[in-house]
Amino acid sequence: MYVLSVCGMGFGTSLMLLMEVQSIAKEHGYTVDGEATDLGSAKGKSCDLIIASSEIAAELSDEAAPVIAIDNLLDKEEIKEKVLPMIKKLAQEG
């Protein structure tokens, strides 16, 4: 599956978020490809799932892929609780 992680400028927080998501996925036996990007570039990009900080996520509601909003980007538990069920679901759907 292909995940888009999005932050304000597309080079800091989003990359950290993507690495965290990939590490959570790997721990549970899933492989996640993806890229980190800024809000402007994220729009209209083809992917299976979008993960973003909550204030960025609010601006991505028109996208085709489901959007997961993270409030606390330093809280690994919150990221895991929100992202892992979706990764499992997408993996089952193939």
Partner: peptide, 22 residues
Amino acid sequence: KGFLEVGPYIVLAPGIAIPHAR
């Protein structure tokens, strides 16, 4: 410039801002 143009995204967690640039 990042903060003024893109907004408060640098407030990564409750009570914590992490300003950065390239």
